[in-house]
Amino acid sequence: MQGKVVGRNKKAYHNYIIDSKIEAGMVLSGPEVKSLRAGKVNLRDGYARVNERGEVMLHNVHISLYTFATHNPNEPIRPRKLLLHKREIKKLIGKLQEKGLALIPLSIYFVSNGKAKVELGLARGKRQYDKRATLKKKQGEREVERAMRRNQN
């Protein structure tokens, strides 16, 4: 269940076919949370990976520095630990063994109790012709909608 969305990865839906979605908590510092609340996040090049200790880490997600932070400034791009249950991590490890699957962040949002969550997608990369076919399909749907609106007026 999503609350206030602060960042979306729009390119993920263009570059990948999303098989399934998973919600995970994030380990963040205070200034990072403030920066997220201001919407200063970039998910475009982000990905998640399971490390050798069995922890899921989020890489290449840029959370800008909070300008009013007085102490403990963090690196904008640093690996952040994701909070998942062990059985979820084991299931992810099994799925990530398949060829061509990646764990991509789709959006970051705050839930009602004030906690930041990230929505991860188990994704398979699209080929160039798949991307073209998707664009053609969307264009066709838009043209049909325009024609229907014209006919109603």
Rank of each mutant, 00 (worst) to 15 (best):
M1P: 14
V5A: 04
V6C: 07
V6F: 15
R8S: 08
K11L: 08
K11C: 05
K11A: 04
Y13A: 15
Y13E: 15
Y13I: 12
H14Q: 07
H14D: 06
N15E: 13
N15I: 13
Y16M: 09
Y16P: 11
I18S: 07
S20H: 06
S20E: 07
E23N: 11
E23W: 06
A24G: 00
M26D: 00
L28W: 01
L28C: 08
L28S: 07
S29P: 02
S29C: 06
S29Y: 03
E32L: 07
V33F: 07
A38L: 06
A38M: 10
G39V: 02
G39K: 03
G39T: 03
V41H: 08
N42E: 05
N42F: 04
L43F: 01
R44S: 02
D45Q: 10
D45G: 11
D45T: 14
R49C: 06
V50M: 06
N51C: 09
E52M: 05
R53N: 12
R53A: 08
R53L: 14
G54T: 02
E55T: 03
M57T: 01
M57H: 02
L58P: 05
H59P: 00
N60M: 01
N60T: 08
V61P: 02
H62T: 05
H62L: 04
S64E: 09
S64D: 06
Y66I: 04
T67W: 14
T67K: 12
F68S: 13
F68G: 13
F68Q: 14
F68A: 12
F68L: 11
T70C: 06
H71T: 09
N72I: 14
N72T: 13
N72V: 14
N74T: 11
N74P: 09
E75A: 13
I77F: 03
R78C: 00
P79D: 01
R80L: 00
R80S: 00
R80K: 01
R80I: 00
L82K: 00
L82G: 00
L83E: 01
L83C: 01
H85K: 09
H85E: 08
H85Y: 04
R87M: 08
E88A: 03
K90M: 14
L96W: 00
Q97L: 08
G100Q: 12
G100Y: 08
L101Q: 04
L101N: 05
L103Y: 02
I104C: 05
P105F: 06
P105A: 01
F110M: 10
S112D: 14
S112E: 15
G114F: 12
K115Y: 14
A116S: 11
K117M: 14
L120P: 10
G121V: 13
R124I: 15
G125D: 00
K126L: 12
K126M: 05
Q128Y: 03
Y129C: 12
Y129D: 15
D130C: 03
K131I: 05
R132N: 11
R132T: 12
R132E: 08
R132V: 13
A133S: 15
A133K: 15
A133T: 15
T134C: 11
K136D: 15
K137T: 12
K138A: 10
K138E: 11
Q139C: 09
G140V: 07
E141V: 13
E141R: 07
R142T: 15
R142S: 15
R142K: 15
E143W: 09
E143G: 06
V144Q: 02
V144S: 00
E145G: 04
E145T: 10
R146I: 03
M148T: 05
R149F: 05
R150C: 04
R150P: 12
R150Y: 10
N153R: 11
